[in-house]
Every structure is written in structure tokens, then in C-alpha cells.
Write a protein that binds this DNA or RNA. Sequence first.
RNA 1: GGGCCCAUAGUUCAGCUUGGAUAGAAUGGCUGCCUGCGGAGCAGUUGGUCGAGGGUUCGAGUCCCUCUGGGCCCA
Length: 646
Amino acid sequence: MTLRILIHEVRELVSSALTSAGYPLTEFDVSEPPQQAFGDLSCNVAFLLSKHLKKPPPKIAMELAEALRQRIRGSSYILSMDPAGGYINFKANYARLSPAILSHVLSNPENYGYPNFGQDMHIIIEHTSINPNKALHVGHMRNVIIGDTLYRVMRATNHRTTVLNYIDDSGVQIADIVVGFKFAGFPVTPPTKNQKFDQYCGDEVYVKINEIYEKDPQVAEKRKLVLKEIEEGKSEIARFAMDITLRVLQEQLKTCWRMKAHYDLLNFETHIVGSKLWSKAFELLKSNGIAKYETEGKNKGCWVIESKEKKEEEDKVLVRSDGTATYIAKDIPYAAWKLGLVEDPFYYQEYTKQWDGSTLYATSLADVSGSNKSVDKKFNGGEQVITIIDSRQSRLQGIISQVLSKIGVNGNSHKYFHLSYEAVTLSSDTAKEFGIDIGDRQFMHMSGRKGIYVNADYVLDALHAKAYKEAKTRNPDFSDQQLNKIADEISISAIRYNMIKQDLDKIITFDIKESLSLEGDTGPYLQYAYARSQRILEKSEQGIIIAGRTNFAFEQLTHDSEIALIKEISKLDLVVENAVKSLCLKSLAHYAYNLAMTFNLFYEKVPVLREQDNEVRMARLGLVKAFGITLKNTLEVLGITALDRM
RNA sequence: GGGCCCAUAGUUCAGCUUGGAUAGAAUGGCUGCCUGCGGAGCAGUUGGUCGAGGGUUCGAGUCCCUCUGGGCCCA
């Protein structure tokens, strides 16, 4: 039993009342009214009918109420119904509802709130995909956290998930680092002790080589040479570049794993290039008449995609007249591979074990025998492909979707979906820490080239230090190991919640001071509510065993804050469903916050352990336990660990 | 020149997909609440011409149009 069933019941009642009162069946909404005083659910059908019936809504509501009143029987979960204004408000019968909801939660602790509508559908999610020449900064964190949360909620709703991380190992950015090492004298080992290799490459080599380019065009020339060698893939420089790529990648993955991100496959760009995927995809485009050869005009000698719909739009060049492919031509075959539109050219080998015990695979072009044996595994051919990239790529991604919709992706434009999000920028105060005064402006964009960004590890470390200190004052008897574990979980929770609670279309103005807050609308607030609930259960179990029991005298829970908590608990599956269907991940965060807040109110108002009446006390313990299950399952999809102590 | 996104309290944001009852949080400021199930909490108070104008509607923060300001992409 969840709120969903109650809503369904109200809908059925209203529908049949419409018929018997002589009104036409029409679409209407059943939702929660803005205030508890109006009831538990509210129906707006009278407003909608008044439009074409030219009758005032309150009058229609009154008439419908008559028909409804006869239908509400004693066996129903609905206690009463009242027309108010034009609304029809319903009050739930919690004496029946509460036992049904709470015993359902208690008997499904593992998967309560996770509706099974995925039905094993294969969803491919790509996220992270950071150039392997630098460490993650806060902007990358947003990408990782959006992607991993999506993966978690898809997995929880029984989708078959494959998470890809695209490694651009043949781009200019990696070439810049190689130039730094080979032609500008940077030592390959970081001169500062214990410096992470990704930070060294990004914070120092990359920033300084860009300064050198400005002054010395001869060094800038070397970049072209290095790029060419990497593309050809055989030389000593190419091998060196791959070595650097893998070392940076390893450090990047450590940071991602620190945030509890999970991946299934690393897709190396050099493998995509070397696999001849492009020529297969190109043939597909030609045979479908999508790619056209221009014989005149400014694109003479190029292969282009014509845009017929809008005349103002430029035709997109795929292959230049000199035979080189554009960046669009790189992305189309990869996208076609994801959807399974071209034959899979890759071998797969085990790359490494991850933090969660799962195996991370990598693409390969050869069937390698020996220790790195290829595995027979299918990573592509998703029924839906979701790519998480920032909004600057919207145009390119739009073109790719458009092209794919013409080949094989029959009519279903949602099969290839670009999940776009806005940038993370620096607040005025945080910009000042880089010695930059941005005047009246609200934010400033980060710049990798100029070294103006906040590293992910720096934020995690700062959060960790703060959480550690706080935890130690509250738990002076805890060991260093215990405190570190707690501080890990709190720091992850703070950053993950911070990055997911905001709308994807909004620029995040990152402020280092504000991001360190552990109070109010934050991840640790959620964990705190959970820890409080677990402490109550822990203390109670010295005298009373409630483990394994699912039925209590829940009908005796009648206090406002008890009812409010039960109602909030009953909504999780609706929230999860909405999060998946509208790809609205922030709604999970908002729900978690509301649930925790509702519990905190209950905690203030209603005593549990001090309750004298044995039955009521037991019922409250059952409620506390059900709350813990619900919050824990919500936090799980957010990638936040529910802590018993903090 | 063309396309996409954003604008709500001092600040950071919910609410807009699907129009509806008194526009909500957090944070900051001020004030209370720990011999009590953990104060990373709770309560109160302060703070809003929902960027501007027009339109649709019985009803617009929400839908449509124009404009302004900011951001991004393409040329």
C-alpha cells in the first residue's frame, strides 16, 4: 500500500460519480492540496468541467459530492469528502491506511519504494568522459554525480544498465601534456612530493604549456606533430602519450570512486578511430541518403548533412574536401555503436576492480590472450541511450540525434537522449581567492587553460576535515578509523546532495565557503535524521525485540506529526517513478529533504521511548523503523550512505 | 546575423512539464528551546511590484507574444 493506491481509488470514485451525475468523463487531476487542513487529496474536476458546461465550479463540485458520498463505503481508505470552493477534498482513513502502508514498508526493507517498471530494459548511460590530461574540478563533479544518480535510480527500478566513460585519448589536450614533457622540459615525475599525477598535469603542465605557446610559436608547432603521431599510433611518442593518458585516468578514476561512482566500460577514442567504425557508419549515412557530396558552392568537395527543415541552418560538414573528418564524424559512429546500429567491432578486457567490487572493462581492438583475456560481453545496443554532457554540446548532440533518427531509430527520438546540464561557475568570493575581482557580476566561468578552477579532491578533502572534526566532538570515544569512515560518508553526502538538488538548466554558482556547510538543506542533514532514528531503535532493543515484526497497532498513531510522517513515507515510489520518467533527479533530493524534515518534526513532538503505553510505544518504534527504511532507500539512489552514527 | 538556456526574499534556490486555495525552503540578521529519544536539531521573527510590458482565461510565478538583462553555442 502506498499513496499511489489511494490516488487511484479517488480517481475511480470520481470517474464513476461523473457518470452517475450525468457529467461527461474528462481528464482531471488528483493531487495533494497546498494545506493539510483541506485534506489529504484534492480533485480539480469541477474547474475543468465548468469550462465547456458554463456552470460555476462550486455548483458542479456540490453535485458531484452528492454522487460521491454514496460511493464511499466502510471498506474504503477514504474517510470523508468535502466540496470546498470548486475543489473536492478527500480525507484519508488513517486507521486503515497506516497499518497497510507501514507493514508494507516493514516487510519490504530492501526494495520498498522501487517500482519495477524497468522490466530489464537496457539503458546505456555515458557520463564523466573527462579529457585525460587533468584532475577533476567541481564542474566535472556535477557531471559524475548526475550520471551516477541516474544509473542508481535506473538500476533500482529494474533497468539493465551499462555505464560508459569515454576516454578522449587522441585529442589536443593530451597532446599539450605530451609537448610539455617532451619539448618543454617538464619532469614526468611531479616535483612536489605526493602530488596526484592528474593534478600535476592539469594544474601545472597544462597551464604552463599554454603560457609557453603564447610566447614561443615553435613549441606550439610541436603540438601538430604530436597529434599526428598519436593518431598514427605506432611511434614512441604515441606509446608515451598512452602511458600518460593511463596514469592520469587512473588518478581521475580514484576521485570518481571516492564519490562512489560506478562504471562498466571505458571507451577509448583511439579504439573507435582504429576500429573503422567511421567507415561503416559513413556507408550507412550514404546509403540512407543522409550524407550528400557537394559539387558546388562553398562546401564544394565536402560530404555534408543537409538541413532541409530550416533554411537558415548551415549544412553540416562531415568530411572536408581534403578528406579529413570533422568532429561530427567522430561522434556519429560512436552513437550508432551505442544504439547497436553498426556491428560491434570491439573486444573487451577486464581493466580493473572498482570500489564496489564490480569489474570495470575497457575496449580493445585485439583479442588479447593471457592475463588480460577478452571477455564475451555485450555493452552496446541499448534500448535507450542517455549521454550526460554539458549544455555547450547541445547543438552537436542535437545534430547527432537528428541523424540517428533517420537511420534505424524508427520514430522514437527519445532513444538517443542528450541529458544536458549547465555549467558550474565560481562565486564572486571564490573568484577572489584566485585574485580576481569580477565586480558586479554574479559569477565567473572556470578556465582549465588558465588554472582557474576548484579541484574536486580539494573540496572533498576540505569537507572531510570539517566532518571529521565535528564527528570527533560528538563521538570522542571513536577510533580514528571509525571517524575517517564517517567523515568520508559525510563529505560525499554533502557534495552529492549539493550538486543534484539544483535544476539542470541552472548555472551552479559554486562558493567554497557555502559548499562546506553541513547544516540546513544539505546531505548531512539527511544523514543526521537517519542517525537519530537508528539511535532510538538501538536503545529500544535492549528491552524489546522488534526485529522481523511487521505488524503493530499502527491505527493508534493519530498525532499530526505521525500522520504527516506516514503520508510522506507512502510517497517514495511515486517520487522514484517521476524521477525516472521525466529524468528529474533533483526531485529525489527534494523528497529526501522533506522526509527528513517531517521526521525531525515528529522527533520533537512525539516521544517514543518515554511513551508509557506499551502498544503505542511499539507502534511508534515500528514507524521509526519504517521511516529509516524509506530514507535509506531514498539515499541509496542518491549515492548517500545512511549512517547509524555520525 | 542565427539558435538554445536563465531571471522568484539581502544571498543561494524550490514551485512552471500538467494554470487553481494565503508564492515556499535554506542561508544571513534578531529571539527563544539541551539534568529530556543526539542542538549537524526545533520554534518564532525579519525579508517578495515572481525582470518589464502586452495577450489568453472565471483564474497566470506557471501558457503565448514582444522587450530588457545575463550565460552558452554556431557563423
